[in-house]
Write a protein that binds this DNA or RNA. Structure first.
Lengths: 210, 210
DNA sequence: GGACAACGAGACGCACCGTCTCGCCCACTC
DNA sequence: GAGTGGGCGAGACGGTGCGTCTCGTTGTCC
């Protein structure tokens, strides 16, 4: 019962890998995910189909890696060595959150990222394996930043101690993702600002208001 | 330039339509959306392929209609004549919202609905036409119920007047949909309850707390 | 300089696509 | 109650991409 698998990754061609990433991203951008085929990626990359099938289990996996690679490069270019940004802490929690949520809105509205992000989200919804990787590699790092900033706010007394930071984060980002995915209403900076205000102050009237 | 289209809908076979709905739903449930083919649906429904292509533009459109039909039947069975439920108004907004959010959580966790709902959500993310119909036919009616209940709360003084009910609704449902789609953490009644508490009272401390 | 595994290229059988052509059947017309 | 027309079930058809499989070729390590 010998496994016929296990290609030797030390012999892997870096050049082909990069060509496949570039071909996958450009094809998805031009023709859409559904019309992008593995044959097409191989042809544009100047690569044999087997080279793709040897290293990736599915079209979605190729695009996921290509997109992760793109994100890394973008983060490095914009944010320094390893792209490990951080949510600023100016002491004004509302302002800090609005800043980062506005940036998220801008990113979701950026046409360069739109096609592959939508395709990956859709694939992740149906295919749990892809979804888990997507969440772990892309979402989790960002979530950690929110949790860190919210913990600091708790220590500073601007957020109640009995709040779970993880749930609080989802209160802020959930509605944005929701609106983006379902395209119900436009995704604007004003919307992001409202969410921060609503989440921090609550929907119910404050005694100090009256 | 005569259109070759426009089949006569008065001659349409009701029996075939219902058989196609049933076949589509059962196949998606058994084999998953990706492995479900139009050929397969036609075969199981005992129907010619052309009958499907005559009335629907895509596999997703078939499933969407089949699912809408299923939802209508379920709503009629459970909720009386036309399924036009309403969010209760006991005067206790938090309790009312928790009730309906818990029901939403249960529905999302129901395996019968899971496969087709995920498939349609995924298709809607990529295909704007499907997404728009999905939002209009399934999401919008539910959203209207929230908006109504929140307006009543504003008149009763339990929600601030300057709150946009639509955004407030998304503050509650967005995180739930987000967690369900991305499978990051389990979707429980406790989570739903927390969301209501966080959203109503806000993350920031209330002066009455100290 | 020989061995070996990944490589580019593409042939292969298969499944499904979307279109088409058949009779068959049933409702409507005269 | 015969004739007509359009939807119907069935399935043939060419096209396309799938995933697997050989081919030589290339480049690296011993």
């Amino acid at each position: 019962m010998a496994e016929s698998k296990a290609p030797d990754s030390t012999r892997r061609s870096e050049k082909s890998r990069r060509a496949i990433y570039a071909a996958a991203l450009s094809l998805v951008g031009e023709a859409g995910y559904a019309k992008t085929t593995i044959e097409g990626i191989a042809a544009r990359a100047g690569v044999g189909k087997q080279t793709i099938y040897r290293w990736w289990p599915s079209k979605a996996a190729v695009l996921l890696e290509a997109f992760l690679d793109l994100s890394e490069q973008a983060a490095e270019a914009a944010g320094g060595a390893d792209g490990a940004y951080d949510i600023p802490d100016t002491g004004d929690l509302a302002a800090d959150l609005k800043l980062v949520l506005r940036a998220t809105v801008d990113e979701l509205n950026d046409p360069t990222f739109e096609a592959p992000t939508r395709a990956l989200a859709a694939e992740g919804i149906v295919d749990a394996a892809i979804g888990a990787q997507y969440a772990e590699k892309l979402l989790e790092p960002q979530a950690a930043l929110y949790v860190r900033r919210l913990r600091a706010a708790q220590e500073a007394g601007t957020v109640r101690d009995d709040i779970d930071p993880r749930t609080a984060m989802e209160l802020l980002t959930g509605p944005i993702v929701h609106r983006w995915l379902l395209r119900t209403l436009p995704l604007t900076h004003e919307y992001a600002d409202s969410l921060v205000d609503y989440a921090l102050n609550g929907l119910a009237p404050r005694s100090s208001d009256q």
